[in-house]
Design a protein around this nucleic acid. Structure first.
Lengths: 196, 196
DNA sequence: CAGCTCGGTCAACGGCTGTAGAATCAAGGT
DNA sequence: ACCTTGATTCTACAGCCGTTGACCGAGCTG
């Protein structure tokens, strides 16, 4: 038999409500942080009973982890010949697109240990790639400074909403940041060094 | 025999316990953020009854404001001829000294509206001075990028504790950051793209 | 059709929170 | 001396939190 259009299978409905909850949770965490986002509020926003949230995700912590699970597109693509440009491209992306997911992590990182670990993990990934491509003995420091700078920019724009930064066109930001990133990423060697 | 050395006047004792509470509160907010720091915990750390905390400071919010009150030494000295060096000097200071006070504000800023306002106020102060001394029409953006960068570095070091940043000697950080700060603070009119 | 599964609801519990107010007791002025 | 002031404590309340377990009813399977 063909599928009745009005008919939704159980699995479909499950998936729908589950992702509705996840979206609501992500928005909550992004707007209010971990502690202030209550399961009851998430449930209400998702038009579900609070008990159901617990039924699907077993605890608030698990809900948080699922809601803020870092998708792979967050990490810098590794096959880039130029770290600086790759970073800037990634930053451009993060300046333009809806920052809800990132915000959820960032806003919770200061109070919630797990969240901090999450941010640190993403950053560490980024950091390692940067360090590896910087051929210098202070590569690690340079890398972390790069990560910190980018973190600061995103925080200042989306969270602190600094005057002049929150509304600035991404391209302008990138242009100003390019020499900064290049300067930090440039080991005092020849650029474009590839190798195994 | 007006003054017995072993004798503490009432006002003295009051001041002592009050500042003991403030210290405990500051440490609590710095370590755990606003929501997670309970009045009971602060009271215990200060070896006082929770009720007393309420009696002195009238609410948790007031306690927070008093505990994180920004002292004037946080703001950049105004009469500096060189903004870049002034910023770097201020940053050096913040890299070396005990960051408890700053951390209390920073850690709470993401979840607590008042705290965010506090950070924004301090930053805005800094920003205005920077902007004024940069002679360019994108001065505001440059200024906020500077603030954001510094914010990111402090966050990355004290809060996120990024590898390679948390233990790095301040001088090394400053040296790496000097061209960055100079570059952003320098109003070279030409946005020109350095050759590809 | 019967029986099991499972999405979804409801009511409740125990714990923790900020806060209020009465009670206690030593200090200090008169 | 008395009586006031003020530092400090005790007890308690009301509300919100995460979490639980019983329950209902519609889909699925045999």
């Amino acid at each position: 038999m063909a599928n009745d259009p009005a008919r939704v299978t159980r699995a479909q409905k499950r998936w729908q409500t589950e992702s509705r909850i996840l979206v609501a949770a992500r928005e909550g965490f992004a707007r209010s942080g971990y502690e202030r986002t209550t399961i009851r509020a998430v449930a209400e926003a998702a038009q579900v009973d609070p008990g159901l949230v617990m039924h699907y995700f077993n605890s608030k912590k698990e809900l948080f982890l699922k809601a803020t699970a870092v998708s792979d597109d967050e990490t810098v693509s590794d096959a880039s010949p130029d770290v600086a440009e790759a970073l800037l491209a990634s930053l451009t992306d993060r300046l333009v697109t809806e920052p809800t997911a990132s915000l959820a992590l960032l806003r919770s990182m200061l109070t919630h240990e797990e969240a901090r670990e999450g941010v640190r993990r993403v950053t560490a990934d980024q950091l390692e790639q940067i360090s590896r491509s910087i051929d210098s003995d202070d590569a690690e420091l340079r890398g972390s400074l790069l990560s910190a700078t980018i973190l600061g920019v995103i925080l200042g724009r989306h969270l602190l909403e600094l005057d002049g930064l929150k509304d600035a066109p991404p391209q302008e930001i990138i242009d100003l940041l390019r020499p900064v990133v290049r300067g930090l990423a440039a080991a005092d060697r020849d650029p474009g060094n590839r190798g195994s």
